[in-house]
């Protein structure tokens, strides 16, 4: 066994709010290995997004430890360990698709030639070649989200953190993007952390499903998926798929019952 890429032990995070402290994460222990596709699933307030933000160093835990590539999240961020995809594409309306993908490259100081070559490569990865000079408003919601994934991939981080990236899209587009995401994951061999509240999405995509429950936010179940790496969409009708989905649902229900 190689060392985990992301490792959290007894992670705690309490927010101080005007209504008193909110226990967002309690005693979270989790190891993520290289090449894993890990989904975090649970109802609102279960801390799945907060946990992802802790990995990214966007939130500071109040207890426990978390390491990314053996570093603190802050160090890992400076070492460009991860790309982050948010719920909304968040493309700059005043930049073209190519310009948006260039944004992190500009900030990180890549050379012009390298920018050009990288933009072309990630546009190809998300199948948006030819849209480089279009503005975001000229693209559909699904295409915009693909552009934002390209932006997160452009600087070659090993880890891709995705916070409900397809939550705002309709189911047909979402299916298509899920399929594409799996292909992209297979081609790039990245480690992916994926927050969702869709059970089929979590089961279809993941090698590891982390079921979480709220108040306080904690992990109630970690499911290693027995599904093969090759996953056509109709795998969702298989017996194994339905069994895992069932187990996830049970986990969610149990979390609610004692919550």
């Amino acid at each position: 066994m190689t060392a985990p890429v992301i490792s959290a032990s007894s992670l705690d995070l309490t927010f101080q709010t005007n209504d008193g402290p909110v226990h967002a994460l309690k005693d979270v222990n989790l190891d993520i290995s290289k090449g894993d596709f890990v989904s975090f699933i649970g109802p609102s307030g279960c801390g799945k997004t907060t946990f992802l933000r802790c990995i990214a160093g966007l939130e500071a835990p109040t207890g426990g430890t978390i390491s990314v590539n053996g570093m603190t999240p802050d160090e890992a961020r400076r070492a460009r360990a991860y790309g982050y995809v948010f719920q909304a594409a968040g493309l700059y309306p005043w930049r073209t698709i190519g310009g948006n993908i260039r944004l992190p490259l500009e900030i990180m100081g890549f050379s012009d030639a390298e920018k050009k070559q990288r933009v072309a490569r990630v546009l190809d990865l998300v199948e948006l070649t030819g849209f480089e000079n279009k503005y975001p408003w000229q693209l559909s919601g699904g295409m915009q989200q693909r552009a934002s994934i390209a932006r997160a991939l452009s600087f070659d981080a090993d880890i891709l953190l995705m916070d409900e990236p397809f939550g705002a899209l309709d189911e047909i587009v979402r299916d298509h993007l899920n399929e594409q995401l799996l292909q992209l994951w297979a081609r790039t061999e990245k480690t992916i952390g994926f927050v969702t509240h869709s059970i089929p999405e979590a089961v279809y995509l993941s090698t590891k499903i982390v079921v979480m429950s709220p108040r306080p936010g904690r992990i109630t179940d970690v499911i290693e998926s027995p599904l093969p790496k090759e996953r056509p969409l109709d795998i969702r009708d298989s017996r194994e798929f339905i069994e895992i989905a069932h187990r996830v649902r049970e986990g969610l229900r149990a979390g609610h019952a004692d919550g």
Binding site: A56, L58, R77, R78, R80, Y82, G83, Y84, F86, Q87, A88, G90, Y92, L103, P104, E106, I107, M108
Partner: peptide, 19 residues
């Protein structure tokens, strides 16, 4: 979200202003 995005790139305050 847009500020967080720049944060994930470890962008400086100056870069955040201009970009």
């Amino acid at each position: 979200m847009q500020l967080d995005l720049l944060n994930t790139y470890s962008a400086s305050g100056t870069q955040g202003f201009w970009k």
